[in-house]
Design a protein around this nucleic acid. Structure first.
Lengths: 207, 207
DNA sequence: CTGCAAAAATGAACGCACTCAACTTTTTTC
DNA sequence: GAAAAAAGTTGAGTGCGTTCATTTTTGCAG
């Protein structure tokens, strides 16, 4: 049985994260002051810092929620990808992209990615990096799956190619969030143009 | 003829940048306070802000210097690359990597890259992005050059493949600066492993 | 040289993320 | 159930990047 203290702790942490998601999204990460956030979560500023190391840490926690969700959906695609190398790769990639703005703004993504580079040693910085690796692993898995099914050439090693594809889609996502005027549609086109020749290259002749 | 005012302005800007390069490198970007930097450059804090928009802006300016230098050296390699697709690509990539820590620390790179994502609208943020595009262009140019020489297959379009390679080396560089314990040698190995299968794939049969 | 306008330098003041010594609440002990 | 210990909360205080009203310097016309 969990004691009162543990329940209160869990509740406070949840309240802080709730307030953060709502406020960051509504008014932007930068514009939200920490004392406001604390007010909204019904705790003091000091308490926020008992649960999260920095303001950025709170943001990364909210982003992590989103990424976990995307990974969940992605695993279904990996388990049974559509036919065709290009189609399958784009299905997974577009799934990532299409969900990216469901709960998060571009500003939030920008800040979170910046933080994961700048402060890779914080708890949530590492958490974010771990999620990134998981996403990468999913792409590798997909390539491996397509190879099993005989759609990807037998002499292709899924690991370096999967990483190549992941690094590429990640960089293109960064370009996307850097430019507020770029649409999801434009991102899709750009990555498709990028992937098409590569997909053709690793696909078996008769695909 | 340049008036006294213009000369003094140029001199002050140079002094600030000089002090910044020296101090950031010696003591770390974060650890350098702006009033110290201003002291060292023999100007007031306010004056620093007449020349640069933010502290990060100063950092990006110092990083830009380094990148410009690397681009200069790279163009020689592109003009006359060594034989062999893999060899040529790695020559250019390693040139980038090997110079990266000449004047800048990993912390400076981390911060600069983070800033270029987080604040892409600042003057120097755009400057940095432009340099990035230039680097990417150089890789594309190299692929095109190798194609001309018949080392890269004729049905390969240099643009998407060049971008693919650039995005990849950029992401691997990010991983490198994120991990203080990772050596240049380890980075080289990682990127070589990544490039080998791709190089083999786009090279002409008889290479 | 003098007076005037434009440009630039200055540093005290401000805002906001973050800290920490004092206080409150929960748990444990007997 | 009271008292001691442990764990957690609190918000005024601190540090540092940034701003802006004031002062100083430069350029220019008469």
């Amino acid at each position: 049985m969990t004691g009162l203290r543990d329940r209160q702790k869990a509740d406070r942490e949840r309240r802080i994260l709730d307030a953060a998601v709502r406020m960051f999204r509504a008014r932007g990460y930068r514009a939200v002051r920490l004392d406001e956030l604390a007010d909204r979560a019904d705790v003091s500023v000091g308490t926020v810092y008992n649960y999260y190391q920095t303001k950025g840490d709170i943001l990364i926690a909210t982003v992590a929620l989103e990424v976990e969700e995307v990974i969940g959906i992605g695993s279904a695609i990996v388990a049974d990808p559509p036919r065709g190398v290009e189609t399958a790769l784009l299905a997974l990639i577009f799934e990532y992209y299409d969900h990216s703005l469901n709960y998060l703004s571009k500003e939030m993504w920008r800040t979170a990615m910046a933080l994961s580079i700048e402060a890779p040693d914080t708890r949530n910085g590492q958490h974010y990096s771990a999620l990134d690796r998981k996403l990468c692993g999913q792409v590798i898995e997909l390539v491996a799956r397509l190879k099993e099914r005989g759609e990807v050439r037998d002499d292709i090693d899924p690991e370096p190619f999967g990483e190549l594809i992941f690094n590429n889609l990640n960089m293109m996502f960064i370009e996307f969030v850097k430019d507020d005027s770029m649409t999801l549609e434009a991102l899709r086109c750009a990555v498709a143009a990028q992937m098409r020749p590569l997909a053709a290259m690793i696909a078996t002749e008769d695909a």
